[in-house]
């Protein structure tokens, strides 16, 4: 440490980078302890994936080549013996999470942009009529077993009649903020609340165990996050640019594609990464909606609990390691677009 002058010692309080040696030890000590807490499980995961069954079951061994001889049997099983299952799940996961992220980000960004720029004023009366009719429709179909064609046709007729009769006279306009809140609040729904009807719905149209079913479900589950983050981002873009594009003859779609999206790279990258991680790692919905063909990686991980033989720790570790790789890859790719504080803007409210 450089010598401080008498003046500095008397009048300047110590700066953070001139922390007392004791403080320094504590700060770095705490950070290193947490690094160990975070990294040790990862390390254990890595070495377990190269342990033999005997090495795992015989009590803990810690250092490869010293404590035990690493073997690639788990990896071989995964990528040579059962390669069909592994690769299928891997590709399923990649396709589903990429498509769901893309769909969710696209639809969510469009809605967020519209909410940030266009003034909507849906009539609360119409919304209420719609909601009540929807409930009546479901009750009469679901519980009283009335023919669904009849119910839906009459519900539509009543809806349009009431729209003409009531909605056009009584107007209680909702604001954009209400629509935004409605969309974001969907995130409160635990998957378990909606998954059974979604399961029945896809069963009815024979779409269970297809990619599309899972993609659509994931896209909707993550839509609130996209709308929330992107809404905040879009409101921070100066309006001049869009107005200028508008005067230059661009349509709303063109303005969105040519001006707004390129300016939102940072927000899009952060949102994409978050939605990607959430879709990639999702388990419960995938469990309901896939049985064999569309199984994703988390299902494969869970499948390593082979019942009577106990958990195949080595294989499971290998699968988890394999699962982390694409996420890290995406994080590295998107990292350069994400300026710090993207999430911050949205969270500040």
């Amino acid at each position: 440490m450089t010598e401080r002058t008498l003046y500095q010692r008397l009048f300047e309080p110590p700066r953070i980078n001139q922390m007392a040696i004791g403080t320094k030890v504590v700060v770095y000590g705490l950070l290193l302890i947490w690094s160990a807490v975070v990294l040790f499980p990862i390390y254990w995961l890595l070495i377990t994936s190269v342990k033999s069954a005997a090495d795992v079951n015989g009590g803990p061994v810690y250092i490869p080549f010293v404590d035990f001889t690493p073997s690639l049997h788990a990896w071989r099983e995964l990528f040579v013996v059962d390669y069909e299952d592994t690769l299928r799940a891997y590709f399923n996961s990649i396709i589903i999470s990429l498509a769901a992220t893309l769909l969710s980000t696209l639809i969510g960004s469009m809605a967020a942009y519209a909410l940030a720029r266009v003034k909507y004023a849906p009539n609360l009366v119409t919304v209420l009529i719609f909601a009540i009719l929807m409930i009546i429709t479901f009750v009469s179909i679901g519980i009283y077993g009335v023919d669904w064609r009849l119910v839906i046709a009459s519900a539509l007729a009543v809806f349009f009649f009431l729209m003409k009769a009531v909605s056009s006279r009584v107007k209680i306009p909702l604001k954009n903020g209400d629509i935004l809140f409605w969309m974001i609040s969907q995130r409160i729904l635990a998957p378990i609340v909606v998954v059974v009807p979604i399961y029945m719905m896809f069963q009815t149209v024979r779409m269970l165990d297809t990619h599309l079913a899972i993609i659509l479900t994931y896209a909707v589950v993550n839509l609130p996050i996209v709308v929330w983050l992107m809404y905040d981002f879009f409101t921070s873009i100066p309006r001049d640019l869009e107005e200028s594009a508008q005067l230059d003859g661009a349509t709303m779609f063109m303005t969105f594609r040519e001006v707004v999206l390129p300016l939102s790279k940072a927000g899009l990258a952060a949102t994409t990464l978050l939605v990607m991680i959430l879709s990639w790692n999702e388990y419960l919905l995938a469990l309901f909606l896939s049985t064999a063909k569309a199984q994703t990686m988390p299902i494969l991980v869970a499948a390593m609990n082979a019942g009577e033989r106990g958990i195949l720790w080595w294989s499971m570790s290998a699968v988890i390691v394999v699962m982390i790789i694409p996420v890290v890859f995406m994080a590295v790719v998107l990292q350069r677009y994400i300026s710090k504080g993207i999430l911050l803007g949205a969270v500040k409210g």
């Binding site: 200028s244 005067l247 001006v259």
Partner: peptide, 19 residues
Amino acid sequence: LPKYRDIAMVFQSYALYPH
């Protein structure tokens, strides 16, 4: 609509597309 007006505007901020 503005796009059909055949009018060009220069904004105070210039509104140049940064990308």
